[in-house]
Simulated scan of single mutants.
Amino acid sequence: MMRVESTISGTVSVILPCYNVAPYLDQCLESLVRQTWESLEIICINDGSTDGTSAVLHSWAARDRRIRVVDRENGGQASARNVGMDMASGEYIAFADPDDYVEHSMYGRLMEEICTHDADVVACGYTSFSDENGSVLEELSRSPGFGVEKEARSSFFHADSVWMKMDVVTCNKLYKKEFLNKCGVRFEPSFRRGEDDVFWLMVLPYAGCLVVVPDRLYWYRRKRQGTVSHAWEEQGCPYSLDMARLEYVTACWEQIGWLDTAVSRGWLAHIMKRYLLSHVTSGEEIFQKLDKQESQALVQRCRKWLHGMETGADPVGLNKWDRAFCRLLRTEPVKANPVAEIYNRLMSACSGRRGRYYRLKSLMSSLS
């Protein structure tokens, strides 16, 4: 087995939440136990599996003393990861999904960077591959440019931000445990899916130094039937989940006194575009797909959130159409007079955002 030649040291605690993944565990655990960085503990949380997952895990634990297994009732991936974080004894924490696998050099490479730069978090690229035939899915893979951000919490958002290059997924990262304990962030158990985004956005307001490397060191299995990621690839993320993530993250930012900073540095505009405006201003036009009752409920939810975000100025980073849609959603629907109704219908035939804006305006009038 190769060894990482370096004076750096520290134990990496790899947390593996497992639910009915027996067919994939051998490949995953083989890739972990053969790491060039040998100072590992592998914490496997069997989250109430009903297949042979527990037996496979205990078989591996009998062969390698670095593997620890916890059997518990099903509580979801977020909760399982939290259990692993609380158990971790290493100075650094990593997460892996049990149907994926990693390059043997992954944690050695990440340890090199996190120690060299004294970073809070370091991330790498990843390769997505199909569960159906093992083919590489380049369009879903990631090879980010190298980057170091010395003080992430004080940076302005831009598309080439280091923290954007790092992506929101959890498993391509190595975290300094001291940093995670200091900020006190854990995965939110109420999110039974899509919890990675929330965790990352909760970590960022506390982050000092961040590092990203282009190496594709993580192998991410896609198109596995029955998984959340496969459903999203086919149908897209549910707007209700995106709205829930937006509400949760901004409430937490406000609680820790970060919201005003997020407004002025463009962070809030970024998540608004991702979790709200992408459903409203894009070709998806979510309101056109909902029935009247669903539309009314979503309008009320958007209005409540937008009123809560009124800080005296629009978030930095929103363009004129973003602001126009926000003003429309923030306003109580009013029945249009006949002339205005005809005008809105005519303008609805326009292409792009202009047409979408007037189609939404007409719909809002019908909800009054």
Rank of each mutant, 00 (worst) to 15 (best):
V21W: 01
V168Y: 04
K150R: 12
Y275L: 15
D291P: 06
D167W: 07
T227Q: 00
I114M: 01
S190Y: 00
S154R: 06
A62N: 13
L268R: 06
L328E: 13
R142C: 14
S39L: 10
H270M: 14
V33N: 02
Y220T: 05
H270C: 09
E103I: 04
L16F: 10
L328M: 15
A297K: 14
R274D: 08
C44T: 13
L276A: 14
D86L: 12
S351P: 06
W163R: 03
G145W: 06
P214Y: 05
E73N: 08
T127F: 03
L346N: 03
S348L: 08
V69P: 01
D86A: 15
D71I: 05
S39D: 15
Y107N: 12
L217R: 02
R345F: 13
I271F: 02
V121N: 01
L210C: 09
Y206V: 06
A349R: 15
F95W: 03
R34P: 02
L290H: 03
L298Y: 09
Y101I: 04
D197K: 01
D242H: 11
R221S: 06
W232I: 12
V316A: 06
L276Y: 14
R303I: 11
N20I: 10
R330G: 09
Y92V: 05
K292M: 11
E284I: 14
Y107C: 08
S155W: 00
A207V: 12
N172K: 05
Q225L: 07
